[in-house]
Computed example of a mutant assay.
Amino acid sequence: MSQDTSSTPSPEENSFSIQPIGFIASDLKEKFGTPRQAGLCLSVASSIILENSAFNREAITGLENCSHLWVLAWFHKNKDMKARSLVRPPRLGGNTKVGVFSTRSPYRPNPISISACALNGIVFKKNEIIIEIDGCDLVHGTPVIDIKPYIPYADAIEDSSAGWADGDWPILEVSYSPQARAILDKHQLEDGLTEILCQDPRPAYQKKNEGKVYTFQFNAFDISFKTINETHVRVEEITALKDKNGK
C-alpha cells in the first residue's frame, strides 16, 4: 500500500520539547565501563528516581505488576558531540562503518536511548519514588524521558534478526589481585564488576594492547585492570574515589 508523503509539516509543527520525568541512580559513573547494551550485566542494580508528586504516584499505578520495563532516556553526556551518519560499532572491531540508524550508538540526531530492564520493586520515600531496576546500561544522572511496560506477546519477536549485531559476543575470563579481592569481598562488588569486565569494555581499536592498564569508576571506587591476553583481564587495584577535597 502506498502512502501520501506529499504534505510536509512546517518547522513550527515539527518543533517540540521534552522534559525528563526522572533520573537514573547507578554505580555506573562514566561511559567507559558501562555495559554496551541493557541486560548484559544483571547484577548491576540501578534506580529510576521520580519526584514523589501526586501525578507520579498515580502514573505508576499498576507498574508493580510488570516484570520488565522499557526505559527511554537522553544521552546527556553527548551534548557537545555532533550526530554522525556513520559509526563504528565495537562488535565489528571498531573499523567497519555502518549507518547510525542501524545501531544503538549515542551519536544520534536525537540522543535517545532505549533499555529493557528488569523491575525489582518500587520504594516510596518522602520526596522520591524509587523504581529499582536491574540490567540497566545508563550512567548515574542520566535523564529519563519515559517508562513503558515490556509486553511479551508484542515485544518478544520470534525469528527476529539484528543484522550485523547477530552472533555471540566473546566472554573474557576475569581475575583479581589479592588487594582487589579484599575490596571486593568487603563491599560485595564482585558480581556486577565481573559482568562488566567479562564483556570487555575496552575500545575495539585498543584490544591488541596487551598489558595496558585501564581505569574506570564503579560504585565509589576506581577500578584499574589490564589485559593478560586476548581472553583474560585482571583487576590490579581497587581504590576509593577521592572527594573534592582530595580525601
Rank of each mutant, 00 (worst) to 15 (best):
G33V: 01
Q217T: 13
F124Q: 01
I151W: 05
V123M: 08
H232W: 13
L241I: 13
E173H: 09
D146G: 12
D146R: 01
K148T: 00
F16Q: 03
T231F: 04
G99M: 10
A162E: 13
I48C: 02
Q217A: 14
P170L: 08
T215R: 12
Y107N: 09
N56Y: 10
G93F: 09
Q37P: 00
E237C: 02
K186S: 13
Q188K: 08
N120C: 06
Y205S: 06
A45H: 11
A118P: 02
S2V: 08
A165D: 14
Q206M: 12
N245K: 10
L193P: 05
K212G: 01
K77V: 06
K29Q: 07
P109V: 11
V100F: 03
S224M: 07
F218C: 14
V233H: 02
T34W: 05
S115W: 05
K97I: 09
L119P: 08
L69N: 10
N245E: 14
A118N: 07
N120P: 01
K212R: 14
P20S: 06
H68V: 02
N95M: 10
T227P: 01
I151Q: 10
F23V: 09
T227Y: 13
A59N: 13
I18G: 00
N219W: 11
A182E: 14
E236D: 12
D243P: 06
I130C: 10
L42C: 04
N127G: 00
I60S: 11
I183S: 08
C41A: 14
N14I: 08
Q188N: 10
F218M: 07
E64R: 09
S177R: 08
I18V: 15
I21R: 00
V144A: 04
K82N: 05
I24L: 03
E58T: 02
L197N: 07
G62C: 11
D134M: 05
T5E: 12
T142F: 04
W74L: 06
I151Y: 10
V123F: 01
E173D: 11
D166P: 14
S10I: 06
I112W: 05
G93R: 10
D168W: 08
Q199V: 01
C136T: 03
T61V: 15
P178C: 02
Q199K: 07
P9S: 04
Q206C: 03
T142S: 11
Y214T: 15
S224T: 09
F124L: 13
P9H: 14
S160R: 11
S26M: 06
A204Y: 02
E58L: 10
P203T: 07
P89H: 14
E13M: 15
L92V: 05
D137A: 12
S102V: 11
D27Q: 07
N65P: 00
H68E: 10
